[in-house]
Computed example of a mutant assay.
Amino acid sequence: MTTAHDTATAAASGASATERFKSDKLTGVEGTPPERVSLLAREVLDAVHATIRKHKVTYDEYNALKAWLISVGEDGEWPLFLDVWVEHVVEEVATEHREGNKGTIEGPYYVPDAPEQGSSGSVPMRDDEPGTPLTWTGRVTSTSGSALAGAKVELWHADADGYYSQFAPNIPEWNLRGTFTTAADGNFEIRTVRPAPYQIPTDGACGKLIAAAGWHAWRPAHLHVKVSAPGHELLTAQLYFPGDEHNDDDIASAVKPELMLAPKPVTGGEAIEYGFVLDPA
């Protein structure tokens, strides 16, 4: 199998993530009052100023920060940086009112309009796709308990080398990405392969920060999902596997107990059951 292992770079992945962000995400804040912009910008700057004063930051350290910020932009890694180290708090605040399923961060590698596979089907994958076959069954309901027919379950995840289609070379466009629509009883069945843990890109600016700080770059194995239905709030989540050594120290701080799966061995692979309860909009 041809993989992206030797050819993917942080800069190329970052550029793809940046372009995707520009095309998909720059909506929803038109008309924000200047007072709100001023409040948020001022408090962020105040926090930076307080850190400088508290720790007596030197000009050499300031210039190192300046150079690093420039390199984040040059590498196109602002989506990666913000999604790894900031988004989990934004998600926490944005969804704290929910009574249904817990969610978590989207991350930088979502692509809309993945191929439709019906209520039961397989995600597109290569004939020799590595990984343990995984069959996932579940049901989508409202907080009232009623089944949500026609709900959309979008799934995407990394391959066995830790790379996402459309963000690394030599991978088919929609590999390990699919859209499923629930049946009349709210049920769905998805066939894919179990993903592997992976490191976020380390050859760019984010990798330099990780090395300088003595951090690790690992994310535990996970499945990304977006679950939506008319009249209900969109749920974005990642689902995790027990026993992963980085469940407790995920670099993106995105793991929650409610998002842990319970795979069971079956003939030819593994099976999981996990459903979703959506809050009304």
Rank of each mutant, 00 (worst) to 15 (best):
W218A: 07
G207T: 05
E19R: 12
D6S: 11
P169G: 00
I210T: 10
S228Y: 07
L39I: 00
G131T: 04
G268W: 03
T132D: 11
L209R: 05
C206F: 00
G186D: 09
L234I: 07
M125E: 13
D279W: 11
D46I: 05
A271V: 02
V255H: 02
K208W: 00
E129C: 06
G214V: 08
Y62K: 01
L148T: 12
D24K: 09
V29R: 10
T95F: 02
G76D: 04
Y110C: 02
T7C: 10
E270F: 01
E19Y: 03
P201Q: 04
T179D: 03
G243T: 05
P195Y: 11
A211Y: 03
N187G: 12
E87P: 06
S16M: 12
D6E: 10
G107N: 08
Q199N: 08
G76E: 06
T202S: 07
G28T: 13
G138Q: 06
A151D: 07
I210P: 12
H224K: 13
E19F: 04
I251T: 09
F188Y: 15
E273A: 09
P220K: 03
E270I: 05
S122T: 08
I171V: 11
D113H: 14
L239A: 04
T18R: 08
E43I: 05
L69C: 13
R139H: 06
S13Y: 01
G150W: 08
I190T: 05
T181W: 02
P172I: 11
V225C: 04
D244G: 12
V140E: 03
Q238M: 15
F167K: 04
G103M: 09
E74S: 06
T182I: 07
D60H: 08
L235I: 09
D128P: 02
G14V: 11
V111K: 14
K208S: 10
A8N: 05
L278Y: 10
D279C: 10
A41N: 08
R191L: 01
A47L: 13
Q166M: 09
K54R: 15
Y163Q: 13
A262V: 02
E270K: 01
G204S: 06
G118M: 05
V277L: 07
W174S: 08
V48N: 03
G145C: 12
A221V: 01
L259R: 10
H246E: 00
Y109T: 15
G145H: 13
V37I: 14
A221G: 10
T179G: 00
A196N: 12
G231H: 06
A17K: 05
